[in-house]
Design a binder for these strands. Structure first.
Length: 490
RNA sequence: CGGGGUAUGGCCCAGUCCGGUCAAGGCGCCUGCUUUGGGAGCAGGAGAUCGUAAGUUCGAAUCUUACUACCCCGACCA
């Protein structure tokens, strides 16, 4: 057991916090609900960014940047949008400070009151659609496929590192299309990108579907989402993609001349994933020894720890290691030689395990003699001694195996905690225990809210490729023609 | 935002009820030596106006009030 990490069986929340802090991913800052993302945590985000950014560009999107501040009046143009976000907006009212004559303290200069208050963006639809109005005149300007990497602020009541903070980093795509069908296709395309990223890069299996009315994004016609199951049996929404219909086009008067020379409102989408993905990553794979990272997103994929007594031994080992490092780098593997003389090997082992480095090599005098190296994998904690000769090839292979194994492990966990339920009693029991519960639902908000009241579970999603199946709503007994996924959620 | 809890060197914390050599201990940090195949040992050393601000008092980590932050449980949410 790693020092300082609360076992997750004992207290899951504490376990999560311990990992974030001890693995040096992030810490709380002086500002309530806002976190400092530390270099190791930020390195993971950078990896995620770079992969996702590539995927967005691959699908025809371009990056741009829109302002942090949004005039309050913009915000109120789309009714359900304001309503959805009003309760969690930070508002800028003044633009100057001054020194108080009496106390000598810095105070807000009341004379520097803004004519129109500014909202710190909780999301950017409004400021972006205000700009799009001028960019779009003709069907020839469409589709408009733009993404931005940004920070947003949502004044949350209760925050948790990475999972929910007042300020967080994300990307938000905002697209405009000629037709409804095209916009829906875009929203679905991005959902596929997100699912692909979650599964192939994060090794995190996800369900894909659409949200119920209650869970839908404020201002959307349809919200698509990916949902993952965390190790405590709670669901985590990992990404969303919205079909916005013509809501924002109408609110901001974005019209274009169609091929038929008709003035029409454009069709919109928006979509985003955030630093919450790092929380999802932690909760998908990590164990009581600390973080477990999928090789494809690990800032350091291989760490090499030398074991030596004398300077001469270190020199000999270093020479050997240099060759391995070179080979690994040539194969695109990120590798760190931990030759700090200030730490003992045992300490380094624990530290890198805590930080989730997928593969550790240890080389000592015995290995030099035998031409071997000790290879330890983080996911299974297994160790074996391998010949040093073709080690880089074996490691590349091993990294793939680990990527695959943790996906399978997470998949098995999800399958073991997925239930098909037809009785209300069993439903309550399964929800209490945690997991995804497939059950019939009459499709009404009223029923969903009642179920939430009684069990804390919500409709996580309505499966996209859900089979039609006659049944009766688990709660109301009214007819239903498909199962939806219920779970308690983060 | 409601309920509960916490705040003392970088970290974990004793001391707070009952005000007066009380700022203790452990980890970490620095120096030296010995060590190095799973979180090393010994010796020496540095580091705290006790969350912030007022107040009570001859005297406050300790009592009072306000504020701030964090944690847990709810409601809300990516």
């Amino acid at each position: 057991m790693a020092k300082g990490i609360t076992p997750k069986e004992e207290n899951y929340s504490q376990w999560y916090n311990d990992i974030v802090l001890k693995a040096d991913l992030a810490e709380n800052s002086a500002v309530r609900g806002s976190m400092v993302i530390k270099p190791y945590g930020y390195a993971i985000w950078e990896k995620m960014q770079s992969v996702l950014d590539g995927m967005f560009k691959e699908t025809g999107h371009e990056n741009a940047y829109f302002p942090l501040f949004i005039p309050k009046s913009f915000f109120s143009k789309e009714a359900s949008h304001v309503e959805g976000f009003a309760k969690e907006c930070a508002v800028v009212t003044h633009y100057r400070l001054k020194k108080d004559e009496k106390t000598g303290k810095i105070v807000v200069d009341e004379e520097a009151k803004l004519e129109e208050e500014l909202i710190v963006r909780p999301t950017s639809e409004t400021i972006i659609w205000d700009a799009y109005k001028n960019w779009i005149q003709s069907y020839r300007d469409l589709p408009l496929l733009i993404n931005q990497w940004a920070n947003v602020v949502r004044w949350e009541m209760r925050t948790r590192l990475f999972l929910r903070t007042a300020e967080f980093l994300w990307q938000e795509g905002h697209t405009a299309h000629e037709t409804k069908a095209e916009a829906i296709k875009e929203a679905e395309l991005i959902l596929g990108v997100y699912a692909d990223f979650a599964e192939k890069w994060m090794s995190m299996p996800v369900l894909q579907g659409v949200k119920s009315t209650n869970e839908r994004f404020a201002g959307a016609i349809e919200t698509y989402c990916i949902e993952a199951l965390m190790q405590d049996g709670k669901a985590l929404q990992a990404g969303t993609s919205h079909f916005l219909g013509q809501n924002f086009a109408k609110a901001f008067d974005v019209q274009f001349l169609s091929r038929e020379n008709q003035l029409e409102y454009v069709w919109a989408t928006s979509w985003g994933v955030s630093t919450r993905l790092i929380g999802a990553l932690i909760m998908s794979h990590s164990d009581n020894n600390g973080l477990v990272l999928p090789p494809k997103l690990a800032p350091i994929q291989v760490v090499i720890v030398p074991i030596y007594r004398s300077e001469e031994q270190l020199a000999a080992i270093s020479e050997k290691v240099e060759g391995i490092v070179k080979e690994l780098k040539a194969k695109g593997v990120s590798v760190k030689f931990d030759n700090r003389d200030t730490r003992k090997p045992g300490f380094k082992f624990s530290e890198w395990e805590l930080k989730g480095v997928p593969v550790r090599l240890a080389i000592g005098p015995r290995d030099l003699e035998n031409g071997t190296v000790e290879v330890a994998r983080r996911d299974t904690m297994e160790k074996e001694n391998l010949q040093i000769a073709d080690i880089s090839e074996k490691i590349v292979h091993l990294l793939e195996k680990i990527q695959d194994n943790i996906y399978r492990k997470a998949s098995t966990f999800r399958d073991d905690n997925t239930f098909y339920v037809d009785s209300w009693e069993v439903f309550k029991q399964k929800i209490k225990e945690g997991g995804f519960v497939y059950a019939h639902w009459d499709g009404t908000s009223e029923t969903e809210l009642k179920i939430k009241d009684e069990t804390k579970a919500t409709v996580r999603l309505i499966p996209i490729d859900g089979k039609k199946e006659e049944g009766k709503c688990i709660y109301s007994g009214n007819p239903s023609y498909r199962r939806v996924v219920f779970a308690k959620a983060y």
